[in-house]
Amino acid sequence: MMLSMLYGVGIAFFGFVLHTSVAGINRKISGRLQKRYGPKWYQEFLDIFKLLSKRATSHGWIFDFGVIMALGGIIATAMFIPVTNNFLAFPDFDNFFIFAYLIAVGMLGMAMSASGSGNPLASIGVMRALTTMLAYDIPYMVVIVTIIKLTGTSSISGLALYQQAAGNNWFIVALPLGAIVAVLALMAGLGKKPFETYIAPAEIASGPLVEYGGKQLGMLFIMMEITHFIEVSLFVNLFLGGAENIFIFLVKYFAVYTALSLISNVYARFKIDQVVLFFYKWPLLIAIVQGFIAIYLGWVI
């Protein structure tokens, strides 16, 4: 058990290093897109370690405790991620709903801490983050439930194995409408451009992060990197057939994240009501149509 715990923390650390590198490379890519030279690929590491080396001000114990709760909650979630078929810490506990519940602990920790700072912009940011979550989670859940209904399992590694066993019949191909919804929900989950309402640096001064500086901000950056790792790995496992070995995982991970940040580079930001209306209009409709034709009509490519 102890060994599995260490293994899980190792996966979280792997996710942090992986996502920070991939995000750094993506900063370089978007720099090149804008005809700039772009930062160093390890710039994100420098940023995080710089933040950890600074002195921080506190706004009371809820503010500090919430940061630790956010980071701890996200590390606990990342422990259950199946990276490849064999590279996972808890083989029997990688049910999808574990992620759905545990990831909320980290998010709530951050929400609690941001509200504890007493800054009105932080409260607006938290409210917007939760509203966005509510908007994209419903269509996303409809698609996931469709997949679970079709395969009869809700274990992430089980779903990955199912796709590999059926001759690499990935759900991104088998359920194309659902995959569109999942990509949109993933963009909202990662806080990519059209759905970036809760960060909005020019509007609400980076939202929940407004009062953080120094060590707390560094910890929240680590937490966000691991959150992004969880969300992108879930997408890779659910829709791209998981990975037999680590290289396939890295390739798929990099492809998904880079494609999303390329898309986000050409968009401007939605308003919060536009985000909610958008998700409740088209993605929800598409997800329900996909569920209907996949489950009742049995039309799966």
């Binding site: 900063r27 720099g31 804008q34 005809k35 700039r36 030279y37 772009g38 930062p39 160093k40 710039q43 420098l46 940023d47 710089k50 600074k54 001000t57 640096p201 020019a202 001064a205 980076s206 992060l209 407004v210 009062e211 953080y212 500086g213 120094g214 901000l217």
Partner: peptide, 22 residues
């Protein structure tokens, strides 16, 4: 900041709030 001199290659960038800035 933009493509002419590209401050970001030195690791610099704009930040939204005083708490986060150096």
């Amino acid at each position: 900041m933009t493509s002419a001199y590209d401050m970001e290659r030195l690791g610099m960038g704009p930040m939204a709030t005083p708490r986060q800035a150096d």
